[in-house]
Design a protein around this nucleic acid. Sequence first.
DNA 1: CGAACAGTTGATCAGGATCAACTCGAGTGG
DNA 2: CCACTCGAGTTGATCCTGATCAACTGTTCG
Lengths: 238, 238
Amino acid sequence: MPDAFIAHLEFYGSLTEEERSFALDLLGPRRSIEQGADLIVEGEAASECQVLLEGQVFRHKTLADGRRQIFSFHVPGDVVGLEAMLLGRDCTVSALTACQVAPIARARFDQMAAQHPRLAMLTWRLSLAEIALLRERLTGLGRRSAYGRMAHLLCEVFARQTRAGLARQNRCHFPVTQAHLADALGLSGVHTNRVLQELRQKGLIELRGRELVILNWPGLQAAGEFEEPHRDAPDPLQ
Amino acid sequence: MPDAFIAHLEFYGSLTEEERSFALDLLGPRRSIEQGADLIVEGEAASECQVLLEGQVFRHKTLADGRRQIFSFHVPGDVVGLEAMLLGRDCTVSALTACQVAPIARARFDQMAAQHPRLAMLTWRLSLAEIALLRERLTGLGRRSAYGRMAHLLCEVFARQTRAGLARQNRCHFPVTQAHLADALGLSGVHTNRVLQELRQKGLIELRGRELVILNWPGLQAAGEFEEPHRDAPDPLQ
DNA sequence: CGAACAGTTGATCAGGATCAACTCGAGTGG
DNA sequence: CCACTCGAGTTGATCCTGATCAACTGTTCG
C-alpha cells in the first residue's frame, strides 16, 4: 500500500523509475495507529513526518474552551506532519479509523531535497494543493451557506476518495459523526443534522453509519459550487 | 529593497553568504504595478512567481455572484504566485497600493531546487507558514465571533508588518477599506463597521484613513486569542 | 459644484446557535 | 434475558449574531 503514496505524488507529475524507488525508500517501518489516537500533537515539533498508508485521519485544532475546528480529512497517500517537521509546529492529527502509517525521517527528507529535487518539488506541490484546498474551505466558511458548505465538503471527500481509488461506484467509506462535520464546517451539531436531512430529502446523498453514498453527483456539485480539481502541472518538471 | 525577501527567508532559517547572493540572483528585473492592478489572475498558470519588494497586495477569490473572499494581505518580502507557477492555478492577487515586484522565473527556481536545496527548503517553509496562517484564519471563521476575528486579523497584520520592519512604534500603514476587512472576515460591510467601532470604543485600536494604530496590544491579542508566531525551526537545516 | 466612494446609523429580518427533550441502537453487566 | 448506560442522531422552541435594506454624512477629486 505504499502505492497510495506514489499514486498521490504521480497525480502531480510523472516519476522516473529511479525516483519512484527512491520515494519508496524514504519510508521507514510501518506503524499501526489505533482509532482515536493522535499522530501529531498541536504545537509539538517532530523529527519525521508521516505518510498515511491505510485508514483515515483528520487535522484539527481545539481551542481552550472546547470549540474545535477541523481542517481536513485525509486518505492513504497523504502526507501529514510536514509542518511539525519543517516548521516545528502543526495542528493535531487524529486517527478517524485504525491506521497504518510510515514515517519519513528528517534526514532522509533532506537527502531527497538534495539528490532528487524533482521529487522534492512534487512533494512541495502537495503542500501547495493543501493551500488551495484551505482557501476553498475558507471561501466556504466566509461566503457560503451551511447547505452549500456541506455539499462542497462532501464533494471534496468523495472526489478525493475516488482519486485514491477508495470509492466503489457512488459510495465511499467516511466514518465521521455529525459532530465531526459540524466542526469542519463551523456549524452547531443541531444545524448540521438539519442540513444533512435537507440534502437527503433532495435526493443528493445518503449518509448512514460510516458510509457516504452520492445519489446525484451533478446536483451535489451544483449545490456546493464544487469544481473538480484537475491535474494541470503547467510545464511539467523536466 | 530585495532585502525584504532575504529578511523574510532568514526568519525561517539562516543563510550562508553564497545562498544569500544566489537568492538575490533569482530575482528578475523589477517591475512597477499600479494600485488596483492584478498581479496574478485566478486560475491562470504562470511561468514565474513574484517577490513583493514594495507596497502591499492581497489574495482573494471572487465568486460568480460577486461575493468575495480575501485570503491574506502581503507585505514586502512575501512571495506570491508560487501556486500559479508550480500548480498551474492560483487565486487572484491584487495590488492594494502601488507596488514594486521582481519575478523569479521557473527555470531559475528549478535551478535553486537543484543547486541549493537548503534555500528551496526555506522557501518551502514559507508555503508551510502560509498553511498555518490559513488554518488560523479558518478557525476564526468557523469558531470565533466577528469581534474576535477582527481583533485577530488586526493582530496578524500588525505582527507581520512589525516583523518586516514596517511598523513604527505602534502604528503601521494598512490602506484597506472596511469592505476589504469585511471580505477577509466573511462579514457584511455594515457589521464590519460596527465591530470596528466597538474595538475603537474599547480603546484597543484606531483605524483611520490608511493607518492602523494599536492602542492596547495585550488587549487586542486577548480579544483575538492571538499568539505571536515564533521562529522555531526545529532542527535548523544543516 | 457635483460625482463617487467610504464610512456611519437605524430598522428589520433571517440563518443558524442554543437549550432541552426524546429516540434509537449497541454494548455491558446483573 | 432484561435493565442500564452511553453515544449518536433527531426534533421542537426560542434566542441572538450578524445580514440586509435604506438613508444619510463626509471627503476627495475632477
